[in-house]
Design a protein around this nucleic acid. Sequence first.
DNA 1: AGCTGACCGTGACATGATCACAGACGCGGC
DNA 2: GCCGCGTCTGTGATCATGTCACGGTCAGCT
Lengths: 218, 218
Amino acid sequence: MTWTDFFPELKRLPEPSLSIVERAGRVVSLPAGAIVFGPGQPPQNYLLLIKGTVRVHQLSEAGREIVLYRVAAGESCAMTTACLIGDEVYQAEGVAETPIEAVVLPRAAFDEAISKSAEFRRFVFAALSSRMTNLFKLIEEVAFSRIDIRLAQRLLDLAGDNDRVAMTHQQLASELGTAREVISRQLTEFQRRGWVATARGELTIVDAAALRQLINAR
Amino acid sequence: MTWTDFFPELKRLPEPSLSIVERAGRVVSLPAGAIVFGPGQPPQNYLLLIKGTVRVHQLSEAGREIVLYRVAAGESCAMTTACLIGDEVYQAEGVAETPIEAVVLPRAAFDEAISKSAEFRRFVFAALSSRMTNLFKLIEEVAFSRIDIRLAQRLLDLAGDNDRVAMTHQQLASELGTAREVISRQLTEFQRRGWVATARGELTIVDAAALRQLINAR
DNA sequence: AGCTGACCGTGACATGATCACAGACGCGGC
DNA sequence: GCCGCGTCTGTGATCATGTCACGGTCAGCT
């Protein structure tokens, strides 16, 4: 079994493209918390995530941060792709949120596959454009959405089936690019209304319907 | 003379790619104020601007807007490219700020040129990735920058050699995704400090150095 | 001159960010 | 258990920004 088993679109690549990427790509593992890439670095490899998730966030000078997007298993990293193509350095940081396994495909092989395979191009650029779409949405949210609505949305996104979010207020603030105090106050209010239950470093969604209603109210 | 004269990178395309795009691309003109594309529309053509500028901005439900980027002569439109590749509809609006001339290249010819020419690909995707880089910067600014600094930056950007910006406060507010009143107050303050002179529908930068210093102060 | 619509100024208030600080909790060491 | 320490959370004060309401001013038109 080879790593392309994790990427159906790539598995269907015609030869010789399939062989190129299969042979050039190496699988690496990183522990949770590892910094996958950081601002100022030039990308050397195309990245494909097999297992785990990577959080990509931007850091401000003042020490605040905002999550730009997450890379899930089976996806590629948009910022890496953009920087590779445009020959630029990373502007954001990528952090392994869980232990991860990823394929690193060296630039040369990436370029070769791009030029030789229409299917590979489609895979790469469809992912890129879909992420771009997300970024436009993010800009709209940051510029125009109220913080309580953004928090409610994010809590629903982050909660698993057990409606639990194991994050500190500071981490939630970093998700949305705001300050911890703002999150604390909003959560206090959510709790007062019986929508969530909070505990140190974690929180439980009690009334998901109410949160959804808040989101749709405007 | 053909329209590719306006795009040095394309002019250097090897045959047959050059002929493909030259023959498939039609030059169109639009008056200032024309809506080039709008939210919900599917893109049918790749766009290359020959003359004038197009402003691409996102509209919020509440009627506020923010300028995502401008397409200058000699450039392509990133949102169009992304939507074409990813087969999605536009999420933002493109407006001709001046009378414009543009090349529209139908999807089929675009796809063909992409698959046949490495140079064309480089042209298209380098533009896309560079715009993506801009978007990350925009997110950082919206999320973390003070409005006075963002306004100062934008004024310097918008001012021509004569240090004049012919826009209303409302238009400036739309540039930055904020409200008119906020701009009015900031400009009043800038004027009080002797940095700008304001008039109805226009403004003159008096002390560009002071504005630059404000920007660099933090 | 008088009308009209766009443009601008401003006060009052709501929301969000920043600063300062204190209390609560969890965990390791004893 | 208990202590000590670092992290996490709560809260008031204040500032920055956004929203609402309204009135005044200006340019262009008849």
